[in-house]
Amino acid sequence: MNGFAKVLLRTSSLLLALMALRPAIFASVDDAQSFALQAAEPYVKQGFQVREDYWGGDLGSGEKKAVRQQLFKGNEYWFWLGTEVDRAKVSVHVYDSDGKLAEESDGWEKGHFAGAHVIPKATGSYFIIVSVEESPEERTHWALVYGFR
């Protein structure tokens, strides 16, 4: 094997190894955001304005995180949670400042996507609780986006 072929083989092997490790090394909250936005897509047609900003991080299985948010009575909100880990199960729920469940009954969880629907009864602070219920990964990226109309 000549020198060029050796270099090519080594480079290809390295690239293949990197590609195999891709989910662990390169996956990011940005990937999770793409999935959260994918969950939001059908709602845009229903008139929901989806915020550009998003909130994200990583969680272990069974861990939760709360995001505090100001909601306004009169508006209607959907929160969408996503992760790039397709065998993970995630959930999102919304509580008012007294800790009472404040979401409508049409929220859903479908594997690595989840959605929660809120029509606030009062203007004020609410807590959006995101959770990685199950995941094959040690840490699972999550991203939360929301829309309102």
Binding site: V67, Q69, K100, L101, G107, S125, E133
Partner: peptide
């Protein structure tokens, strides 16, 4: 599709260590 039922009440004070900063709404909200 709906997953496990969420608890009707939670203790907000217990969340204090895991709460992210408050999200600033856009003026058009």
């Amino acid at each position: 599709a709906n997953g496990a039922q969420a608890p009707q009440h939670i203790n907000i004070k217990q969340l204090s260590t895991t709460v992210e900063d408050v999200v600033v709404p856009l003026p058009n909200e």
